[in-house]
Structure formats: structure tokens, C-alpha cells
Nucleic acid binder design. Structure first.
Length: 590
RNA sequence: GGACCUGUAGUGCAGCCUGGAGUGCACGUCGGCCUGUCAAGCCGAAGGUCGCGGGUUCAAAUCCCGUCAGGUCCGCCA
């Protein structure tokens, strides 16, 4: 018996020519039984490495998913009975002795079935679901990815430091989970939405380079790519700027893809936020999709068509879909209106006696200049479909992006988007503030510790919405994989940003006083990044939801279907925490 | 807070639009047969609160309303 193998001599999937002729023991679960009568029973034993066929020639009372230790002689199968579908298909265990380590009831769903098992059922019995090949693969992949990241970070002189889970609420940003304090009644810790402030304080503490495979917690609504708790590669480095962080993260990513997938990522393109918005209509474009937005404003300055006389003219060409029915086109228009646009104009490219022409609700208003403008601006072919939104540029482009996303999900070019094509993109120069609220205060686009672009500092008071920040996102195939920024390390600039956000000095002091205080004592210039590991693994695993790469995820309404948490607790427990539950009847019926 | 999709035997589905006896398929389960299978095969059997509640109707899995659960998305996610 060895440390590695315990009760067994080999793992099931490891049986190979090196052990032919040996009497070995394997342990695992019964995957399938093929019973030919008492003289011949085939039994597939499965563990985390694979499966091996065991031949039994006596009466047994074994059922699926029993836990067995099987001892037998490893033999080659008769050559005509090789099974090429599995790695151990040339071997089998003969003259087997079976020890039943545990019995099992029939499972609520089959682990062998190729059918899609209802996800709620899988989550209720997650401990069984994890036995499936899919989950075994995904969780092993997750381990390998995290392991590779730790090695990379370590080799780049980053040091892993734990930061507290029970900490200080940071009221800006995502809604946080609160934890009542028993010892300090009426006081609360919060679970961090990210270790942001802690890692900046580590920089003040002279750690130079920090990273953490960090749990982040956000009490916001769940999605396919969002869970309450998720895992982030959190990193921060001193005396570096945007370029170094981008270089570091790019290296970690490309080393990872080479190691895990043998894929060479190559240099990662970079695009400014405004350019991304105007070209793709989103700040997280999927570069695998070759549909971009063209600004035709300059070509329609003197048009008489009202639908083309908005403050800009943004157009998108969809190849070979002019046959699309009116119902779909009406849905496009509906999407545009739902997003706050005035509408959307479509033009089918046809070929008539005048050459290329347009079939559209505005056909009869189109003058020759308008036709030429579309031909010149978009170079369409017969059978293409042109979609145009004439509105404020950002809104128009966002509408076209939404329509494009819908079109792709419904009918467009799906087969052309390769799942094994990994198109990374850095998006830089995000706006510092995304809007101004009803009180005239700016609303931060990133977090309030983000350094404004130095060239825009003088706009902070006069025109804050024009201020760019030193923030950058890493995008992969339309997923936001992570984001980071250069941080403010000077107290004066930090105060200026808090002011723009509408925080009074007193508020800033009470919420972030410890941080402002730290900045009095020599904070180094620093910058960092947070990379969503669940999303990264989901993409690498070719899964469309991060739930598939998390051992025990929650449903969209935030319930763990296995434990059925969250649960009620008894009054005494609540009272001990210095709390009382309001509207209890209502919460009990839920 | 909102929109849409889904819920039928242990599992995966069909049936629903156009109301007429829980009508059907595959897998699994249970029993029997079977000495080279590998999604073994053959024979047989059991297995149903059609998510739940209400309404319309002579009659509801089917139509209507509500509700619960799951999913996708919008809002939200500094």
C-alpha cells in the first residue's frame, strides 16, 4: 500500500501494458454491468482517471454505482474484442475477486446518459453530478488553471497574501453581504466585493507585488456568468503603470493558454474604449464576429430622408440575409426602441434594372445621392441587409450591437464562430465617470480609487464626463475577463475624485479615512488588476455558464438547491446577534 | 422590479396550438434467459399529484388567471 494509491495498486484509467500479467487491485464505482449469465459478466469500474473492464465468472449481486475493490489479473483482451473508444480498451481484469466497499441505491439520474439532465436536478444532487465525466474534467481543469496561475505569479515575484473576509463596508459600488457582529451588537462586517482597498494598503506596506486567488462576494442578481461568490486572480504592483500591468497579465494569460490548451495567444490587440464603442457598440466585443459598425454621417449631410437625419448615421452590413422576413425585421426595430432609440432602418440590397438598389420602408424617398452613399460607405452585395440607426453615436452603436447579438443568437453565422478561437482584446481609456446623477454628482465608472488620465485632470471640475481614466479591461470572445487600473496614490487627487463623486470631506473621512490616512505616509505609485477565474475557466472548458466550473453553485434566485440555503434561523440565534426579523410571516412563506 | 422560455413515470422526450379514458417512445429500475460484451441482447413486469392552486367547460396535461421552481436576458453588477 502506498500513499498515492491507498487501497488500490493502480487507478482504473491507468491500467496499461506495464501491468499485464500482474495481479492488481483497483477501486471505484460500477459504471456499467453487462451480464451474460453466471459464467460471464462484464463490469466497468470507474474512478477519477477513467474506467477498466473487469471480467467475472460467477454469480454476483452487484448494481450500478456500488463502490468496489476488485482484484484480478491484468490481461490483453482477445484482439477482436479491443475497444478503441477507451484508453484501457485493450486490457481487462480477469479472475476477479470483488470486495463490496459500499452499496448504492439507483441514482436519480444517469451519469452515462448523453441527454441533458435538468440543471436543477443536477444541483440538488451535485455530489452525484460531480461524478460525471464533464464535472470531473471541469474541476480538474479548474485546478490546473489555478495551479498554473500560481506558478506564473510566483515566478514574476508576486507574493500571495490573504486579506480579510470580515471587513469594512465600502458603500460605493456593488451591494455587499453584511455579517452581524455578535460582540459589537448593531455593528456589521461586510464581505468584500473585492480585496481592492486591502491590496492598495499592502502596496503602502511595501509588499511591492501582491496576488491572491481571492473570493469576491457581491449581493447582485445572478447570471450565467455571475454568482454571488466568485474567484478572481487579484493582483497589484508598485512602481508600475498601465503598460507593465498589461504586460504582466498578458504574459500570465499567454503562458496559461500555452500550458493548458497548447494555444499560442500572441500579442494582444488594444483598442480605446471610445473606439470599441463606435466600432462594435460594446466595450466587450467578440472579435470572432466580423461585423462592425460604419459611421456614415459624413455621407448623409444633405439627405432628405428623415430617418437618416439624426445626429449621426451608424450602419451595419449583414451578409446574405436579405431574405429575412418582416417579422424579424420588426423585432430589430423593437429592440432599438426598447433601448431608447427612435427606430431602426433596414434596407435589403436587391439587383434591379438600375443595378444594386434598396428595398426598404424608405425606398421611395431615397434619392440617387443616398443610394450612392450606401454603396460607397458599405460596399454591399445583392442579398445583403443594411441596418441603420441615426441617433447619438453611442446610443446608435449600442442599438446595432444589441441587434447583432440578437441576430446571432437567433439565426446568424453561428457555425462560423469557432469555440476554439480565442480572441483577446485590451480595452483602454475608459471614461472616469459614466454619468451625472440628479444632484449633479458624477457616478464612478470604475471604482473611486482609479487614477484619472493626467491629460484630463483639468477637466475634473468643468466637464467630468470628458475625463478619461487609467482603467483597462481584458476581453475574450465577448466576455469581460477582468479589469484593472492605475490607482490614485496621492491624497490630494483622491480627495478631488471623492469631491467629484459628491462625497463631503466628512463622508470621505468616515468611509475611507483609514485609506486617506495611509496615503499620508508615503504611498508608492501602484496599479493592479482583477481577472475573473470562473469566466476564464468556463471559456477554456467550452461551457456557457460559470456554474459548470464551480463545485457548488447557486441557482439564479440565489438558492443552493442541495442544502436549500439560505435558511431561517431560530429566534434565539437572531437575538444573540442583536437583530430581529421584520415581516417574518412573509419571509416564512417564501 | 421587468420580459421571455421550461415544468408530463426515476431520467430524457412526444402529446398542448385545434379540450374527449394518463395515449406513446427511448433510457433506467425490478424479475427471467443468455460464455466476449462494451449504449450488450432477448422475454416479461412495475412505475403518473401531467409543478401547485383556482377558473371556464358536460369534459382540462391541453384554454384562462394566479403561484412556485429552473433557465436566458433587461435593470443591477464601483
Amino acid at each position: 500500500m502506498t500513499i498515492a494509491y491507498g487501497l488500490r495498486d493502480r487507478y482504473c484509467g491507468e491500467v496499461d501494458e506495464t501491468c499485464v500479467g500482474m495481479n492488481i487491485s483497483v477501486c471505484g464505482w460500477v459504471s456499467r454491468i453487462r451480464d451474460h449469465g453466471e459464467h460471464l459478466v462484464f463490469l466497468d469500474l470507474r474512478d477519477h482517471t477513467g474506467q477498466i473492464q473487469c471480467v467475472v465468472d460467477k454469480n454476483i449481486n452487484i448494481r450500478s454505482e456500488y463502490v468496489l475493490k476488485i482484484s484480478g489479473f491484468v490481461s490483453y483482451r482477445p484482439e477482436e474484442n479491443y475497444n478503441d473508444k477507451i484508453p484501457t480498451g485493450r486490457f481487462e481484469l480477469k479472475d476477479c475477486e470483488i470486495e463490496i466497499l459500499n452499496t448504492a441505491e439507483a441514482l436519480p439520474f444517469s451519469l452515462n446518459s448523453k441527454a441533458n439532465i435538468d440543471e436543477a436536478l443536477r444541483l440538488k444532487y451535485r455530489f452525484l453530478d460531480i461524478r460525471s465525466e464533464r464535472m470531473q474534467y471541469n474541476l480538474r481543469l479548474r485546478h490546473n488553471v489555478i495551479q498554473a496561475i500560481r506558478e506564473s505569479m510566483s515566478s514574476l515575484d508576486f507574493l500571495e497574501v490573504d486579506t480579510p473576509l470580515l471587513w469594512m463596508p465600502t458603500p460605493e459600488g456593488a451591494r455587499e453581504f453584511l455579517v452581524p457582529s455578535r460582540l459589537q451588537k448593531g455593528h456589521f462586517y461586510s464581505l468584500p466585493q473585492s480585496p481592492q482597498i486591502a491590496k492598495q494598503l499592502l502596496m503602502v506596506g511595501g509588499m511591492d507585488r501582491y496576488f491572491q486567488i481571492a473570493k469576491c462576494l457581491r449581493d447582485e442578481d445572478l447570471r450565467a456568468d455571475r454568482q454571488f461568490e466568485f474567484t478572481q486572480l487579484d493582483l497589484e504592483a508598485s512602481f508600475v503603470g498601465q503598460d507593465q500591468i498589461i504586460e504582466i497579465v498578458s504574459k500570465v494569460i499567454s503562458d496559461l493558454f500555452l500550458k493548458i490548451l497548447s494555444v499560442s495567444v500572441g500579442p494582444i490587440e488594444s483598442i480605446s474604449w471610445i473606439q470599441a464603442m463606435l466600432t462594435y457598440g460594446t466595450d466587450k466585443p467578440d472579435l470572432r464576429i466580423p461585423i462592425t459598425i460604419t459611421d456614415l454621417t459624413a455621407l448623409f449631410t444633405s439627405t432628405k430622408v428623415n430617418a437618416l437625419r439624426g445626429s449621426s448615421v451608424q450602419a451595419m452590413l449583414l451578409k446574405n440575409v436579405a431574405s429575412l422576413g418582416r417579422a424579424k425585421l420588426d423585432e430589430f426595430v423593437a429592440i432599438a426602441k426598447r433601448l431608447g432609440g427612435k427606430g431602426l432602418l433596414w434596407l435589403r440590397v436587391v439587383n434591379d434594372e438600375q443595378g444594386l438598389n434598396f428595398d426598404s420602408p424608405v425606398s421611395k424617398f431615397l434619392e440617387d445621392d443616398d443610394r450612392q452613399a450606401f454603396l460607397k460607405g458599405l460596399d454591399p452585395n445583392e442579398g445583403d441587409l443594411i441596418l441603420v440607426v441615426s441617433d447619438e453615436p453611442l446610443l446608435a452603436c449600442q442599438i446595432l450591437h444589441a441587434v447583432k447579438t440578437y441576430a446571432i443568437s437567433e439565426f446568424l453565422i453561428k457555425e462560423e464562430v469557432s469555440k476554439t478561437d480565442y480572441r483577446f482584446l485590451w480595452v483602454t481609456d475608459f471614461p472616469m465617470f459614466e454619468s451625472v446623477d440628479e444632484n449633479g454628482n458624477a457616478v464612478a465608472a470604475h471604482h473611486p480609487f482609479t487614477m484619472p488620465n493626467e491629460d484630463d485632470l483639468q477637466l475634473m471640475d468643468s466637464n467630468p464626463l470628458k475625463v478619461r481614466s487609467s482603467a483597462y479591461d481584458l476581453v475574450l470572445n465577448g466576455w469581460e475577463l477582468g479589469s484593472g487600473s492605475v490607482r490614485i496614490h496621492k491624497r490630494e487627487i483622491q480627495e478631488k475624485v471623492f469631491n467629484a463623486l459628491g462625497l463631503t470631506d466628512q463622508e470621505a473621512e468616515s468611509k475611507f479615512g483609514f485609506m486617506l490616512n495611509a496615503f499620508r505616509y508615503g504611498a508608492p505609485p501602484h496599479a493592479g488588476f482583477g481577472l475573473g477565474i470562473d469566466r476564464l475557466i468556463a471559456i477554456v472548458a467550452n461551457e456557457s455558464s460559470i456554474r459548470e466550473v464551480i463545485a457548488f453553485p447557486k441557482s439564479q434566485s440565489g438558492i443552493d438547491l442541495m442544502t436549500m440555503s439560505p435558511t431561517m434561523v431560530d429566534d434565539r440565534t437572531v437575538k444573540e446577534l442583536g437583530l430581529s426579523v421584520l415581516d417574518k410571516d412573509k419571509s416564512e412563506t417564501k
